[in-house]
Amino acid sequence: MDGDSTLEPRQRDRYSRQLLIEGIDPADQRTLLSSCVLVVGVGGLGSSIIQYLAAAGVGTIGIVDDGRVKRSNLQRQVVHTVDDIGDPKVDSAARFVDALNPAIDIETHETRIEPSSAEALLEGHDVVVDALDNFVGRFVVNDAAVLAGIPFVHGAVYGFEGQTTVFRPDGPCYRCLLPEPPGEEGIPSDEPMGVFPTAPGTIGCLQATEVLKLLLGIGEPLEGHLLRYDGTDATFLRTPLKRDPDCPLCGPNGPEIESLETVAYDDRCRIERSASTE
């Protein structure tokens, strides 16, 4: 079968540069066009992730954020503009994607990720991406992804630095990397934290790359490794990450959990106990 026949002429033109890469053919592009990715957070990381997934032709992108665009966001959150100030971030991001690639379907969820809603938000997606700026939200996304059997691409930035990795159902999860939220001395206060403008772009691009690799089944995903970036000296450090046998969620001695509704969290999203299946 002639692979080009699987794409329309405009699609072959739009995605022609990636189709010239050895190992990526029109059938792979059709895979991207039929894929569905959920991006949780539409700030600095989310801006970079969303625009490159849309540019690459990921057919459906769900975006979750309960925030509104502020002037201080514009220094790094590049899908938003001055005209968007005051608008919901999900609406601003949807307009950006529509202008970049009108063929992409955007599903907007103007809400905060919570244990009560996470499983429903993740349902039907091939990959979920962490573009959050808080630990509690990451734990909720991680837990829902583990229970749903969905790959989870993590990313975080602070100052000049950032990190990213991939969690898959048969590997370590976020709680293996960070068993519980840091103590109060290790958590940034409610005051705005410093972020170098390009740091989220760097990490977000890496996250988008990992998402595309997962969807296409190419290369070696970052599963089992944490990639740290320091913009001050342009260095990357790749360290192994193994499953924690004492992990309360994915460890071999962990409880059997069918739904987040059976998980009891404390006020910082640590698992206190869970209802085992009968």
Results as ranks from 00 to 15, higher is better:
Asp4Phe: 13
Tyr15Gln: 02
Gly23Asn: 13
Asp25Leu: 04
Asp25Gln: 01
Pro26Gly: 12
Arg30Ala: 14
Ser34Tyr: 04
Gly41Tyr: 05
Gly46Ala: 00
Ile49Val: 15
Leu53Asp: 11
Ile61Ser: 12
Gly62Phe: 09
Val64Leu: 09
Arg68Tyr: 07
Asn73Trp: 14
Val78Leu: 13
Val78Pro: 00
Val79Ser: 07
Thr81Cys: 10
Thr81Leu: 15
Ile85Arg: 10
Ser92Thr: 10
Ala94Val: 12
Val97Gln: 14
Asp105Val: 05
Asp105Cys: 10
His109Lys: 10
His109Ala: 11
Ala120Met: 01
Val129Met: 11
Asn134Val: 08
Val141Asn: 02
Val146Phe: 07
Leu147Thr: 04
Ala148Asp: 00
Gly149Arg: 06
Phe152Ser: 07
Val153Asp: 10
Phe160His: 09
Gly162Lys: 05
Val166Ala: 07
Val166Gln: 08
Pro169Ile: 04
Arg175Pro: 02
Pro179Phe: 04
Ile187Asp: 06
Pro188Tyr: 13
Pro192Glu: 10
Met193Arg: 05
Gly194Ala: 15
Ile203His: 04
Cys205Trp: 07
Leu206Glu: 13
Glu210Phe: 08
Leu214Arg: 03
Leu216Phe: 04
Gly217Tyr: 03
Gly217Gln: 01
Glu223Trp: 00
Leu226His: 04
Leu227Trp: 12
Tyr229Ser: 09
Asp230Gly: 12
Asp233Glu: 02
Phe236Leu: 13
Leu237Met: 13
Leu241Met: 14
Arg243Tyr: 02
Asp246Thr: 08
Pro248Ser: 02
Pro252Cys: 01
Asn253Gly: 13
Gly254Lys: 03
Glu258Gln: 11
Ser259Cys: 08
Leu260Phe: 02
Glu261Ala: 10
Val263His: 00
Ala264Phe: 02
Ser276Lys: 11
Thr277Pro: 00
Glu278Asp: 13
